[in-house]
Amino acid sequence: MTSVDRSPRAGDGVASPARGSTPSPPVAQAGGPRRSRRRHDGWWPVLFVLPTMVGVVVFYLWPIVQTGYFSFTEWGAFGGQTWVGTENYVRLANDPDLGTAVVNTLVYTAIVLLGIPIAMVVASLLSRPGMRFTAFYRVLFFMPYVAMPTAVAMVWRLIFNGDFGILNWLLGLVGIDGPAWTSTPGFALVAVSVVGLWTSLGFAVIILSAGLRNIPPELYEAASLDGATAWRQFRSVTVPLLTPSVFFVTVITVINGFQLFDLLYALMGQANPAIQQTQSLVYLFYNEAFLRNDKGFAAAIAMVILLIVGAVTLLQFRMQRRWVTYA
């Protein structure tokens, strides 16, 4: 994602000698030699972008606009809106479940983010010189990312089962009496987060491995010549040059973390005694919209999710200048 606000591409400003041959777009004189190639794109961009834009507007943006409007209304069970002003937002602000959901979502995201340092270690190990079986290891780490969440949740429920699960049996060997993991408040969130981490770790490993591969070996040589220790090399070469990849993975992880729902639902189900203390923002939305049939209120929750994710993402892009280094 980093390139989004990167400086202009290297090619910018290179005059294109090709302009004359562009087939008669109905637009625009070339302004001047410098940017002329771009100008000559004429109507072509429309052809390229229009299908996607139409789809995005119709199926995504318009629903968001609608949701924004609905958040100021009260819905009849099956449509029919009454304007209620900011009532839904006021109610939401006073709803203790919102705070719980925000905290849970943050905790989940934070735990899943712990996967990034782990992934860095794994990626470093994989790219060691002379390392063998790397393809095999990468398959092992990436498999959870590929697996079907509904199917995977079933086996995790068995593993986490308080009475018959293998996890508690293992804990029992060292004298710990484990809880009913997916049904006890507190533990349930940890259990869900661990599965979330397990699922997404492989993705981070792959991206970070690619990032490592792109670090020019000369930098290490230079550092070596300067007498830098291994630790020093890691700190002053590996880490800074890996930051763009880390940034990318972080942004993706955070966006996904804020959308926690499927995993929670599949692991816990809606009739779980711990669900209220464990619910995420999207669960809160789903519960209001589809179980309690309060779609105006649910729309307000959706807008809050959009605002939070938007703000966090923006903040990440702002902050990246402080820690992300581009080679």
């Binding site: 429920r157 986490f160 089962n161 308080g162 009475d163 018959f164 699960g165 809880p179 009913a180 993991w181 997916t182 049904s183 006890t184 189900g269 009739a271 779980n272 005694p273 711990a274």
Partner: peptide, 10 residues
């Protein structure tokens, strides 16, 4: 009876 948590797990 098992606890509510146990009945949710199993």
């Amino acid at each position: 009876s098992p606890t509510v948590q146990q009945l949710s797990d199993t």
